[in-house]
Design a protein around this nucleic acid. Structure first.
Lengths: 210, 210, 210, 210
DNA sequence: TATGAATGAGTATTCATTCAT
DNA sequence: TATGAATGAATACTCATTCAT
């Protein structure tokens, strides 16, 4: 039995390693070709595989997308947590969480693409259904939660804290969209500055209301 | 001569009508299949035409996209102008412009899709020439401009007014994105309420600063 | 009746004029786009017509090709006749005819294209059948005939004269093919020089045999 | 290991066989429809495949064209070499090379079509890269070279030998063109006879000049 | 005589996916 | 676990031709 376990473990490790290599390839292709240009063929080639081979590791192309996205959200969450762990004052906590969220996507445009992909119609027929979808939603919620917690520490009610979180999420999303597509330059504005201002005003409003 | 004129008019009317029917079909397909799934074939089928027939009415698939988009922006602009024409006080002007912008897209999700399409990379292949692209950008700018003007009437500097416009645009875009994809319910929030609150706070902040 | 004739004449003249304009357009397109790129649409556009309009003047696209070709052959024949009319000695006659044939195509590559088109499989379904085909063959025969006549004047039998004509025709065709496609340069040779040498040798052989 | 080798060999053999079947189908289509009418669809259908399947075996339509052509030239070259290997006297060498060249195309009209295709403008779109183009030119040069060598053995200078080669090539091409399209019968002549006579006279002229 | 509108067949190529081996 | 081969559906666009007006 011990032997069986050992073998299982090793086998599983090898399997995970290969999955990881494929996901790396997928990320590389997303980065190079954008989401629309990322075909199974291209990912397979980059990974040194035949397209058919990927089906032993993933159910479908969409499943690869989903996994890359999940990983992206995990990194996002890490970023946010790291930022908040350094903060002491509640207002620094909120500011840190919101700006870390914004900055992650501002600095990693391809992750932003992935995020938008989730929010768009994509992930169609075999989208792995609601199971994976719920996982993804949870990943996003995790990355946003620190904002709500910080708001509470700043004196907001649970309800109000959640609204602040959603509102900040939306503001960040909107600014990132504008920045990502270059339209914000068209209006002579700076997305990071606008985000910072938004956050400061939010904090100020909350303090005043207290 | 009167007869000739009449005929010309009728002929042109019929032509425009057919164009309109094709554009309607395109809108329907955009709605049903999303923008990526909207193929010439699908549009033609929906309009009761052969794919080849569309080329008599439009130069290319991208030209159809562009026309639908342009029309969408025109309706957006109308909505905004209608809302602001009813306002008297400067603050009602800003609120009216911002909320009209938001409401138009909240009530017309397919126009929202089109709007996002403009902001994404798409429309590359034959690019429509940058001429058409500029037209579209201008259409958007037109619909946003009333916000900036209202902000100036509220006492903002030209520079500050433009930033308010962009910021409100971004906030609306973010909320619409969340609402459109159903994620906002996930957080137990209401997009219109959050938008209204954002606008009110913006106005309050501006008044205070004055 | 006189009036009717007059009218008919005028009508016919107008009709021929329009046909001529279309044929001119076709020639221009052949020249600019080559034979494969010459679509009915392109010819119509060049002529200032709608594609459909051409069908009032010609039965089909192939009919236009045929007519342009026929005209090309007529010009070829003129060239040959003009050259031979200047010659006095029988050998100058043969040389003149053969070289005029060669030179015409060497200087008018598009006419060569048309000629090859006739000789290839083209002119398919509605190729106007054998009637027009016979006309074209006759046009070609006319342009070659002077060579045979000159050969006879040089002392060849009727039979032998015809063979000389065909042989010279073939030699010219082969050299033109090589020259037209640039391959002759590949071999460091000059088509006109080779043609001239061939003709001279032919004449010499015939004189000797006499 | 032996087994592995065997398997590899068998697998490769099957692969080559399938490629061969597709190329056969392509040749058949070229023959039946002419080169312009030879679409990927038609070739695939003839081979019992779906169009997409061909892309597994060949990079593109042009690649199929090229391979068929290359093979045709290889057989031409073989024919010429076989004929010259039987000859002893220099004049038989020249006669053998020239007539083998001519006979190959006279007996294989579809190879003639392919040859003409090489000489026409076609094959533009992706051009196969000039690499393949050079290969084809080389293939042709190989098949013609024996003529030049024979001419040298007959006493011609290097320069003169090359000219004789090109001239014979042109004469053959012209006669084949006439014969292939049936026009030569129109003039009551025989292409093989005219070719033979041309060759004999060439040899005689060369001997006399020596 | 000419047009605008429409058709149907055709073009090469790409895609995600499946399956026997 | 991986491959080579194959599929069927899809892509946008072009063409010569027809027909009602």
């Amino acid at each position: 039995m011990a032997m069986a376990e050992g073998k299982t473990g090793r086998v599983r490790a090898v399997k995970d390693l290969k999955r990881g290599l494929i996901l790396d390839a997928a990320r590389k292709i997303f980065e190079a070709e954008g989401l629309d240009g990322a075909s199974l063929r291209a990912i397979a080639a980059e990974a040194g595989y035949t397209p058919a081979a990927l089906y032993f590791h993933f159910e479908s192309k969409e499943a690869i997308y989903a996994e890359v996205l999940q990983d992206s959200l995990a990194r996002l969450k890490d970023n946010v947590l790291r930022a908040t762990s350094r903060a002491r004052r509640p207002e620094d906590l909120f500011r840190g969480a919101a700006m870390a969220f914004f900055d992650f996507y501002a600095k990693n445009p391809r992750d932003l693409d992935l995020g938008f992909y989730l929010f768009r119609g994509g992930m169609k027929p075999k989208g792995l259904g609601s199971a994976r979808d719920r996982l993804l939603n949870a990943g996003l919620a995790d990355a946003l939660q620190p904002m709500a917690e910080a708001a509470e520490k700043l004196g907001a009610s649970k309800e109000e804290a959640r609204l602040m979180m959603v509102d900040a999420f939306a503001h960040a999303a909107g600014l990132l969209l504008l920045a990502h597509t270059g339209r914000i330059r068209m209006f002579g504005a700076s997305a990071p500055q606008l985000m910072a201002r938004y956050v400061d005003e939010r904090i100020a409003l909350l303090k005043k209301a207290r």
